[in-house]
Amino acid sequence: MAQSVVKPGKRISGESGSSTSARKLALVTKLRDQIAAIEKRHGQAERAGDGQAAEGAAGFRTAPAGILHEVWTDQDRNAGAALGFALGQARALLDRQRPAILWVQLAHEGQETGLPYGPGLRRFGLDPEALVICRVQNVTEFLWAVEEAAGCQAVAAVIGDVVQPGKALDFTASRRFSMRAEAAGISIFMVRYGTGREASAAGLRWRVMPHLSGAAPFDARAPGVPRFEVALEKGEALMGLKQGSGNWILDWTDHGFERDTDGKLDGQPGEGRAAALSGAAFAALGYRLSETA
């Protein structure tokens, strides 16, 4: 800038037309930057709206792609619920360009929390072909695998399940994950167990606990559709929520997450859409229950 002032006047006058266009260009660039900055926060959240039926339950929406999630649950015996929630979130991100979800787990923890079971994943609308199971030997490999998978343009989501992460999974690691996720537009879900929380760069931190399900249709004694108690502990702003308003009790139905499908939870009328869902199969079982009991 200083140099252009020193230059001979003839040249300045000769460039008067182009300098206005340069100013315009600068303005446009500045505006673009502003938009990008806005988009990074709320814009991302809005984009989720035109994906899958996100606004199923009041105030709850599935998160857009490109975010590092932490899905915490208190004990490893709740592993099923944590996986279910992560899968529910990840399903919305699958499309033709991104047909795969990667599951990364320490090999020796497979018995502890179980391996994803193909036929069971159908409930989450997931073709078992789409889920690739990656069993690693140690935490270093775990970190490598998650990061590598998060760099691939064809992966929709990476779910890392780790009971005992050791020291290697620290803030730096989470920062790396989060930058990778943002750069490639892939969501990373770290399924974690316990009540202690460490510093992390995760955009969203969920606490997911199983919740007593609503009754199955036709059989009051059988468990109903999966129900979770979900709390958003970090990242309300990212999801466009007010502080402290991120608490839900959610059912997983064929339409995604919905709140209180049987209408018995807190007196609010349910949408009733879930009634004829995946219940049919185990309702049939329920019938037989009365005969055997």
């Binding site: 179980g114 079971y117 069971g120 994943l121 159908r122 409930r123 989450f124």
Partner: peptide
Amino acid sequence: DLSGVPERPERLLPV
């Protein structure tokens, strides 16, 4: 065709 198979869990313990 798994449509007739009743509900299965999301996680299976290897043993």
